[in-house]
Write a protein that binds this DNA or RNA. Structure first.
Length: 618
RNA sequence: GGAGCUGUCGUCUAGCGGUUUAGGACACGUGCCUGUCACGCACGAGGUCGCGGGUUCGAAUCCCGUCAGCUCCGCCA
């Protein structure tokens, strides 16, 4: 049963009952959730929310709630008429204080479903501290209520056990992180929120400057350059739990403002950063979840991850790896294969052990999915008895090719094979999406598992199809790896970087790199990215000047804290771990933000609006 | 920019062209009730079906548009 009863055995609710002593105030002596049989007969003063009122005529029960739990309070008209009559007008979510005596419940009236169910408070007096309108929904209805009204009445939603747990979990992750980094020589340094716009990467949120008409700050997409400059300044190790802002479209795991565990270290290699973060993650899992993780985490090269799992954030909780089939079809007479191979494409396949359950519609959906993710198409083959391949394209394959395919994939009756032939990245990623889908659909995934991995040896650049130029795979301050540095001029797409991502259950939860600390190399990278001198000076002049005054070798990483907490808490959306999140259109249902501002406010910052359609003003 | 799903009392929902003056449950209000903890019983109030237009003798129900929410693609160095 999932109610508002706070389950003190819950793994996240390990608030020690001893701790409650320090919560006593002038208004209360104890917390609701700490009361127990050993305290029977003591006088208590409690404050809290009315979770539920049960009126039996001359007898009223109130379940009083604070963050620690629930306690039943009893009002008896024959014993205390005055407080009984006040209790009569109490309603759900009223905030009251009561004084009374803790009593043991009789054997017949003990409630085993309630942590404090063997005791109750006989009330001597009651005070209404704050009245409440009838709440928009009862707290224990939360999991059935539409998210729209939960966001509108977020102050009510946050009272629920789930949200209390989620934000306490988040707090434990951030406080454990601070302790760990503090004890490893890091200091926490704050950097500006009103920062400089460097229009590269995500879209900036802009803030007009009243004192500098026509000029704008940008909210930081990350504190990257500040972190690096603090290294130039000799702090050696800094971190911050940093708010970052990116004006891009939202997803279940993306908010316009989000929190990174962001750190930078001097005189380090890739291994140093990885080791530090493995220590951090291990500590978080031990202290927050009481769970031991095996170290070191698995490391995959980017290339291997793409080839085997079809993504740079592989879900290693299940197998079903992608197999290369290109060589089998090198002399194929099948037109699709001929075309792909002539353009240096690849042919890869995915074997599904239990393929018999898929209908023709499922197979059509797989084709649609493959196309949606950029592949030209998808070929499916069902393996029937005697290893006969049932497929629309079977007639285009030779017996030899079929035999090689059967051997390569170790095919048996009822297997399903999905084959994509296209350019390397498109082929891999289409199969990767299908692999993830099938992993879930076929229940191949242990949902209790936490499977970490590092992905390393990323390419330094990727080709931006839209802009028709190179763009950095990580960011433009990432160091090329020394062994591929000499390819920068002739074959930049072949250059590897000293970047690394940390992946958890198929989610990228962080990424970082060893940075460039040589001004000439940094300028060269900007040039390769197609920045002209003016652009370099306008956007990064300050940074290049800083590089001129001595910059140590350094590197760092940023972990997406919201995402990490979401996964640890086994939640479906990042909004569940953010106190006041925004909707998919970046709107806050509670504060009704963003909103229009006055003409005067606009003119103070020298802004004139062009006519645009506005969000409905109710 | 695009695709899909959703939108009926406070909440969750039934209804999917005429027996609907839109039904139920929970919540809410009034009354009764001394042991409940999903309290119980009785009575009552509450929605015109996101919004706009169209089709039709007739629309919550069909069509078009639009708004909002969610999921996804693009986007997110």
């Amino acid at each position: 049963m999932k109610g508002i009863i706070l389950d003190m055995t819950n793994k996240y609710s390990n608030i020690k009952k001893d701790d409650f002593k320090s919560y006593a105030t002038t208004l209360r002596s104890n917390m609701c959730g700490e009361l127990n049989f050993g305290m029977v007969d003591s006088k208590v003063k409690l404050c809290g929310w009315v979770n539920k009122r049960r009126d039996h005529g001359k007898l009223i029960f109130i379940d009083l709630r604070d963050f620690s739990g629930l306690i039943q309070v009893v009002f008896d008209a024959n014993i205390n008429e005055a407080s009984y009559s006040i209790a009569k007008e109490i309603r759900a979510e009223y905030i009251i204080s009561i004084e009374g005596t803790l009593k043991a419940r009789t054997a017949e009236t003990v409630n085993r479903d309630l942590a404090t169910g063997d005791v109750e408070v006989a009330a001597d007096s009651i005070n209404i501290l704050s009245r409440s309108k009838t709440p928009p929904y009862a707290l224990d209805e939360r999991d059935r209520v539409d998210e729209m009204s939960r966001l509108k009445y977020r102050y009510v939603d946050l009272r629920t056990e789930d949200m209390q747990e989620n934000l306490r979990l988040r707090h434990k992750v951030s406080s454990t992180t601070r302790q760990y980094l503090n004890s490893n020589g890091f200091i926490e340094v704050e950097t500006p929120i009103l920062a400089k716009s460097t229009p590269e990467g995500a879209r900036d949120f802009l803030v007009p400057s009243r004192l500098n008409p026509g000029n704008f700050y940008a909210l930081p997409q990350s504190p990257q350059l500040y972190k690096q400059i603090l290294m130039f300044s000799g702090f050696d190790r800094i971190y911050q739990i940093a708010r970052c802002f990116r004006d891009e479209d939202l997803r279940a795991d993306r908010q316009p403002e989000f929190t990174q565990i962001d750190l930078e270290m001097s005189f380090v290699s890739v291994d140093d950063v990885i080791k530090l973060i493995e220590g951090l993650i291990t500590k978080i899992f031990t202290e927050v979840l009481g769970m031991e993780l095996a170290l070191p985490f698995k490391r995959l090269t980017w290339r291997h991850s793409m080839e085997t799992y079809g993504t740079d954030k592989p879900d290693l909780r299940f197998g079903m790896q992608i197999t290369d089939l290109t060589d089998i079809f090198k002399n194929s007479q099948f037109n699709i294969f001929i075309n792909v191979l002539s353009r240096k494409g690849v042919i890869k396949g995915l074997k599904v052990d239990d393929g018999s359950q898929f209908t023709r519609k499922d197979l059509d959906d797989f084709v649609y999915t493959a196309k949606k993710y950029g592949a030209g198409g998808l070929i499916w083959m069902k393996v029937e008895s005697n290893n006969v391949l049932n497929s629309p394209v079977a007639k285009f394959l030779t017996d030899g090719e079929k035999q090689l395919l059967i051997e390569r994939l170790d095919l048996h009756e009822n297997n399903l094979v999905l084959i994509v032939a296209d350019q390397f990245l498109k082929t891999c990623s289409a199969l990767g999406v299908l692999r993830n889908y099938l992993g879930h659909r076929l229940n191949l995934i242990d949902l209790d598992a936490f499977n970490f991995a590092w992905v390393v040896d990323f390419p330094l650049f990727e080709f931006d199809d839209r802009e028709k130029r190179l763009s950095p795979m990580h960011h433009p301050f990432t160091s090329p790896s020394p062994d591929s540095m000499d390819m920068l001029d002739m074959e930049p797409l072949g250059v590897k970087s000293l970047a690394y991502d940390i992946v958890l259950n198929g989610n990228e939860i962080g990424g970082g790199s060893i940075r460039i600390n040589d001004i000439e190399l940094q300028k060269k990278i900007f040039k390769i990215l197609g920045f002209d001198d003016k652009r370099i000076e306008d956007n990064f002049g300050f940074f290049l000047r800083a590089l001129q005054y001595g910059a140590p070798p350094h590197g760092g990483i940023a972990l997406g804290m919201d995402r990490l907490v979401m996964i640890i808490g086994r939640l479906e959306s990042i909004r569940e771990v953010i106190a006041f999140p925004k909707t998919q259109s970046a709107y806050c249902m509670m504060t009704e933000s963003p909103s229009v501002v006055t003409e005067q406010q606009l003119s103070e910052v020298s802004i004139k609006l062009s006519p645009i359609k506005k969000r409905d003003q109710e």
